[in-house]
Amino acid sequence: MIVADRKPLKEILEMLDGCNRVLIVGCKGCVSVCNVGGSKEVGILASILKIAGKKNGLDIEVDEKTLERQCDPEYVDQIKDVVADYDVILSMACGVGPQFLSERYPENRCLPAVNTTFFGGAVQHGIWEERCAGCGTCGIHHFGGLCPIARCSKSLLNGPCGGSADGKCEISKDVDCIWDMIVKKAMEQGRLDDLLKFKPAKNWSTARDGGPRTSVREELVQ
């Protein structure tokens, strides 16, 4: 899923400066699963904003709405009858949400309430870790099913670098060295030969480096 963190309240309040009518829009997709932008979090942020408004003597009216998804025009449409009532639409979806809202409702100001961080999953309750960088050409079968592009701090394809120590990455003792895992797994499975093969320079044109990407599924296009 796409993982995000809520922006600090101070930053959200600064963005909302001068706004009186705010619609907070949550999303039942990834951000719900990672407990940052579902209906529960929308409710919490609404209460916080109301309290903050009162404390600062501001006249802020805050409403809530959580959509099935914000990355789909069909659901984004569902607020079309109410958006005109608000100065601001504050999206709690990943970075995609506020953009779909901005494009659908060009008259409104649509702001992000979260920082979208990565594609990952929950490794335990309350802890999410990055797993994929969306490079557009998945090659993890060369690395025992582990991704060095997203998970090695230097995206090395012929690792590990000389900074790998005790299974940790040179950047921090809190970060696992994925290359340590890749090597150990290959050794355990008796597949070390795979890692001895030279991996040539990657073609990054399928990644963000090739410019913004579009995916067309002909059979679905009407």
Partner: peptide, 28 residues
């Protein structure tokens, strides 16, 4: 060389390139 990660240095906010790695640099 691959190079030390910029987290150690005096511009930790920089973007890191790593278009190719040290092995690929040697071959290049």
């Amino acid at each position: 060389l691959s190079g030390d990660h910029q987290r150690f240095g005096n511009h930790p906010e920089s973007k890191n390139v790593y278009d190719i790695d040290s092995m690929q640099l040697i071959a290049l």
